Simulated scan of single mutants.
Amino acid sequence: MDSIHSLLTFVRAAETRSFTLAGRQLGLSPSAAGKAVARLEERLGVRLLHRSTRTITLTAEGARFLERCRRILCEIEAAELEIAATQAAPRGRLKVSLPLAGMLMMPAITAFMRSWPEIELDLDFSDRLVDIIDEGFDAVVRAGGLRDSRLMSRTLGEFRLVLVGAPAYFTRRGTPLEPEDLLVHACLHHRFATSGKLERWPLQRGRKDMDLELPETAVVNTIEPLIHLAEQGLGIACLPDFALRRQLAEGNLVKVLDDFTHHSGPFRLLWPESRGVSPKLRVFIDHMAEHLFA
């Protein structure tokens, strides 16, 4: 057990590049975490980590050893989870990061809470690029691709960006038939909270992107206010289709320039590979994959 604890401490230290953070995750002091790795290095007869006053980095031997340790710990955790799954229903705290548009996912979240009352959800709404491992998240829901080799992922569904406005707005201002028509319309824009940049409207003619200087009637850094402004007939907005199911079905919003709008992307659920899949995380993954884009 001491060997397993040393391996786990080494993996956490290597991933966080800090004995302080590794110790915090494991309930140890920075000194105890450092000594555990030092004992492991002494037993192996090789240096696994370079230490400095600011950070720690892997040696070449440490990098090779890290991958083997991750596989060993994953197998141990998988064995424990397999046994635990047969003994009890999923329960405990589940910490999940959702995008700011996550309020639009609340019907699926609400249904999950009703189905699994023993699981306590800790939800963090943010568009920033969270560090799943360092910040202790069990899972993160985000749009786009997978960029971190330490993470596992499951695609929850695909979405498209569409241009929409209220019927009353188009009655008053006319319906744009060509992308250039947008230059005389009220355009409602989304600003990325992380970068401060406006989200580009994915307009194309043929296969060529169009870069138009669109009016900035309003700029908002979350999606829900844009939906409200568009429903109130104050302009045209570029929004993900999954967020507009009710409005489109009820006719409160209608799509325009669909033949000139080309963008699609995945929503993914990500979780740390090194922690395996606990029963509570497994049912959350399966539920979101089934219900989010149902």
Rank of each mutant, 00 (worst) to 15 (best):
S31T: 09
R17H: 08
E178N: 08
H189W: 14
E273I: 01
F260G: 01
R200P: 07
A186D: 13
G157E: 04
F19E: 06
R154W: 13
D209A: 15
H50C: 01
L244V: 06
H262M: 06
T9M: 06
P215N: 10
L198K: 00
V11H: 01
V11I: 09
K208H: 11
L239V: 08
T57F: 11
E180V: 09
R51A: 10
A78K: 05
F267P: 03
A230K: 02
G45R: 01
N252Q: 14
G45W: 07
S52C: 06
V141E: 03
L58S: 03
G265C: 12
P202G: 01
G136I: 05
L161T: 13
I109L: 15
A63S: 13
P99G: 01
H287M: 08
G62V: 03
V219T: 04
V11W: 03
L40I: 00
V164C: 09
A33T: 02
T57G: 09
R68Q: 14
T16C: 08
R200I: 04
S6D: 09
H263E: 12
T59G: 10
T55W: 12
K208E: 07
S18N: 06
I56V: 12
Q204G: 02
P225V: 11
G233N: 04
S115K: 14
I72W: 08
G174C: 05
F112E: 11
A14G: 01
R142I: 11
E80S: 14
L49C: 02
D259G: 13
L121K: 05
I133T: 10
V219A: 08
Q87P: 00
L146S: 11
P179I: 13
L28Q: 09
E75W: 03
D258W: 05
A32T: 07
K197R: 14
E41A: 07
R71F: 08
G251Y: 05
L257M: 06
F159T: 15
R150C: 00
R39T: 01
R43G: 11
T20W: 10
R68F: 10
W116T: 05
F284A: 03
T222R: 06
A88R: 11
S52V: 06
R172D: 15
V11Q: 10
A84H: 09
H185K: 05
L123I: 15
A243S: 14
G174Y: 00
A230N: 07
A166E: 12
A111P: 01
S195M: 04
E67S: 15
M103D: 15
T110N: 15
M103Q: 13
L177Q: 13
A88V: 01
L248S: 06
G136D: 03
